[in-house]
């Protein structure tokens, strides 16, 4: 049963990240996802400090707030300070992460947060916190939160698909037809923050980044249609999560690490196949 909980949790993270990640990949903003996943640390700490509890909701809100703060900071560096965009990302997230670690190691002895779980997550122990549903059915708290997030993201993307689509592929056209480009930017960034924060609590920063970039990249090699790409990346995300889990069990290693490794392997296979296909086409066209 515990295995099942872990697999379901990992799959939910995979789905969330695959949907949001597909948009990030098309918008060339994946590294912002990476930045957010590191930058949530101070928010987690302040939420803990203010609420005095390590329960999920305040921490979630704190982390999401600092995720959005990180995107605003990055925006400020590029727009107002005119720093080039890659440097803005690097400067902001390292600063926030450093502040977070200082706060946690100074005041966080009693808190249930440490540096390691930030990076690896606690997927292995997800079944420790169970919430009853009905009389005989239990579900891990983390899984429940992830499930509601999945529903939120799917509804959000379904409602906002048109706006997200047009601002992703033709921002100039979007501006000229009066679409609020800034609104959709923050709509997506809010989604990214929520996804990274919620997922990060269960799987750690690194696997979040792997899920955000890997499955969408694999799907993008196979199709150019955004809807197909989202569905394919969900599929590959789930596939990698399941294979990764059993690999980790087999070799007795970190689940998050194993899933990332499998994502890398699957990408390599698809990449080799797609380049060979392309070179064949090249030969024909000459």
């Amino acid at each position: 049963m515990n295995d099942l909980y872990i697999i379901i949790t990992a799959c939910l993270v995979a789905i969330n990240c695959a949907i949001v990640g597909s948009f990030l990949v098309m918008r060339k903003m994946v590294m912002i996802g990476d930045a957010i996943s590191h930058a949530v640390l101070p928010g987690i700490f302040f939420a803990y400090l203010l609420s005095g509890s390590t329960s999920s909701l305040p921490i979630l809100i704190g982390a999401a707030a600092s995720g959005i703060f990180a995107t605003i900071l990055i925006e400020w560096f590029t727009q107002k300070a005119r720093l080039q965009s890659d440097a803005s990302i690097g400067v902001s997230y390292t600063l926030l992460f450093a502040i977070g670690i200082i706060l946690i190691s100074k005041f966080g002895e009693n808190a249930d947060i440490d540096q390691q779980c930030v990076l690896y997550g606690e997927l292995e122990y997800v079944w420790l916190w169970l919430v009853p549903i009905g009389n005989h059915f239990f579900i891990p708290q983390q899984t429940l939160i992830l499930l509601s997030l999945t529903l939120i993201i799917i509804t959000g993307v379904m409602i906002g698909f048109k706006g997200l689509f047009i601002t992703t592929f033709d921002p100039n056209f979007a501006i000229s037809t009066g679409v609020a480009i800034g609104f959709w930017h923050y709509f997506l960034m809010g989604g990214v923050s929520l996804t990274t924060v919620v997922s990060f609590e269960s799987v750690g920063a690194i696997l979040v980044v792997a899920f955000l970039s890997g499955p969408p990249a694999i799907a993008y090699l196979l199709t150019e249609n955004l809807k197909k790409m989202i569905i394919l990346s969900c599929f590959f995300g789930i596939l990698c999560a399941i294979i990764g889990f059993y690999t980790a069990k087999l070799f007795d290693v970190s689940i998050a690490g194993a899933i990332s490794t499998i994502i890398g392997l699957v990408f390599t296979v698809v990449f080799i196949i797609s380049t060979q296909k392309k070179s064949k086409i090249d030969v024909i066209s000459y």
Partner: peptide, 14 residues
């Protein structure tokens, strides 16, 4: 970049 970073780090963690 994001993919390479996370996969290498994942391998390292494994």
């Amino acid at each position: 970049l994001a993919l390479t970073l996370s996969v290498f780090f994942g391998v390292g963690i494994v």
